[in-house]
Computed example of a mutant assay.
Amino acid sequence: MPLDDFGVDDQAACLRLLSGPERDRHDAFKSEPARLQHLAVRGLVRSTLSRYRDIAPEHWRFDANRHGRPFIDDGLGVSGLHFSLSHTHGLVACAVATFAEIGVDAEPRDRDVGLAELAPAVLSPRERTRFDTMSGQARQDFFFTLWTLKEAYVKARGVGLSLPVKKVELDLEVSPPIADFGDEIDDDASRWAFRSLRLTDRHIVGIAAAVPDDELEIVPRRTRAINPPWHA
């Protein structure tokens, strides 16, 4: 959902959906853009999940693991429904799946974060070699394609910052990307499917998924944070 579409009426509607802790966090933001991103993504996940189960958006409850990954409260008795969230300048995203290991991450293509300084912590040696030969928008796109795919993988694993992402190496020369994991990752790269999407002209979105016994199929949907009818 592009935040250009997030008008005052939608903001008010989303605010009415928030739980007490979500409202407290909303009220604590000092930055207006960060506050709107949080509000939009919380409204988006609630109204989107209600498309798949007969639960009103305001009645969803959530918990989080010790690394902060959110999940549907077990007390609701919902099975076979999992999600991942991302929010950034100008865009919020919610990935929904029938399996637990799903992750999404979004970044603006022109984000100014000092790529040369970040590269040693994010990119593998081979990725850095290619990165160092690039310039301009190609360099930005290469870095943020890798960044979003790796962040999506970290979210899907649900282990927070404990993973050394430079040990996750992705070959972007093939489509879809192929991953190779160092021993420190302690995972089988063949379990994972990675996809990079351009859902707007301004953003790169990464998806990482460990799909049980099937091929990964992605169905993008542009929507609003408040997106009735609740059932597809």
Score class of each variant (00 low, 15 high):
residue 72 I to G: 07
residue 80 G to Q: 15
residue 89 H to V: 09
residue 89 H to K: 06
residue 92 V to T: 06
residue 99 F to K: 01
residue 125 P to A: 06
residue 93 A to I: 00
residue 120 P to K: 02
residue 83 F to I: 10
residue 108 P to F: 09
residue 127 E to S: 12
residue 127 E to Q: 07
residue 133 T to I: 05
residue 71 F to K: 14
residue 100 A to H: 15
residue 118 L to R: 01
residue 120 P to L: 03
residue 129 T to C: 08
residue 125 P to E: 08
residue 105 D to I: 08
residue 89 H to I: 07
residue 107 E to P: 01
residue 111 R to P: 12
residue 127 E to R: 00
residue 96 V to M: 04
residue 90 G to C: 01
residue 75 G to N: 15
residue 92 V to C: 11
residue 105 D to Y: 03
residue 93 A to C: 03
residue 117 E to F: 01
residue 76 L to Y: 09
residue 102 I to P: 07
residue 127 E to M: 05
residue 101 E to F: 07
residue 86 S to G: 02
residue 99 F to R: 11
residue 111 R to M: 14
residue 121 A to C: 09
residue 107 E to Q: 05
residue 85 L to H: 13
residue 106 A to R: 00
residue 122 V to L: 00
residue 88 T to V: 10
residue 102 I to D: 08
residue 122 V to M: 06
residue 101 E to S: 07
residue 103 G to D: 05
residue 73 D to P: 15
residue 69 R to A: 07
residue 96 V to E: 00
residue 104 V to F: 03
residue 112 D to Y: 11
residue 116 A to Y: 04
residue 133 T to P: 03
residue 82 H to Y: 15
residue 76 L to A: 06
residue 126 R to T: 08
residue 103 G to H: 09
residue 103 G to N: 10
residue 130 R to N: 09
residue 89 H to Q: 11
residue 113 V to E: 10
residue 98 T to D: 13
residue 72 I to N: 04
residue 109 R to I: 06
residue 108 P to E: 14
residue 79 S to N: 12
residue 84 S to T: 13
residue 88 T to Y: 01
residue 76 L to N: 10
residue 95 A to L: 00
residue 130 R to Y: 13
residue 86 S to D: 01
residue 127 E to F: 08
residue 109 R to L: 07
residue 128 R to D: 14
residue 105 D to K: 04
residue 132 D to T: 11
residue 121 A to W: 12
residue 69 R to P: 11
residue 120 P to H: 09
residue 100 A to C: 13
residue 97 A to M: 13
residue 122 V to W: 02
residue 69 R to W: 07
residue 129 T to L: 07
residue 77 G to S: 15
residue 84 S to A: 06
residue 133 T to D: 08
residue 100 A to R: 13
residue 105 D to E: 09
residue 128 R to V: 10
residue 87 H to I: 01
residue 125 P to G: 02
residue 116 A to D: 08
residue 91 L to A: 01
residue 132 D to G: 04
residue 123 L to Y: 01
residue 69 R to K: 13
residue 71 F to C: 14
residue 84 S to H: 02
residue 123 L to C: 02
residue 81 L to K: 11
residue 76 L to S: 13
residue 115 L to A: 10
residue 108 P to Y: 11
residue 118 L to C: 06
residue 75 G to A: 15
residue 93 A to L: 03
residue 78 V to I: 15
residue 72 I to Q: 08
residue 106 A to E: 02
residue 131 F to L: 09
residue 129 T to Q: 12
residue 100 A to M: 13
residue 120 P to D: 01
residue 112 D to N: 07
residue 118 L to P: 11
residue 103 G to R: 05
residue 85 L to G: 12
residue 105 D to A: 04
residue 116 A to F: 06
residue 121 A to S: 09
residue 75 G to D: 15
residue 112 D to E: 12
residue 96 V to L: 07
residue 86 S to W: 00
residue 121 A to N: 08
residue 93 A to F: 01
residue 86 S to V: 00
residue 114 G to T: 08
residue 121 A to T: 11
residue 104 V to Q: 00
residue 86 S to F: 04
residue 112 D to G: 03
residue 125 P to R: 03
residue 96 V to W: 00
residue 114 G to D: 12
residue 69 R to S: 12
residue 69 R to Q: 06
residue 109 R to H: 07
residue 69 R to T: 10
residue 128 R to A: 15
residue 79 S to D: 08
residue 92 V to W: 03
residue 91 L to H: 05
residue 90 G to Y: 01
residue 87 H to P: 02
residue 127 E to V: 09
residue 123 L to V: 03
residue 80 G to I: 14
residue 79 S to P: 04
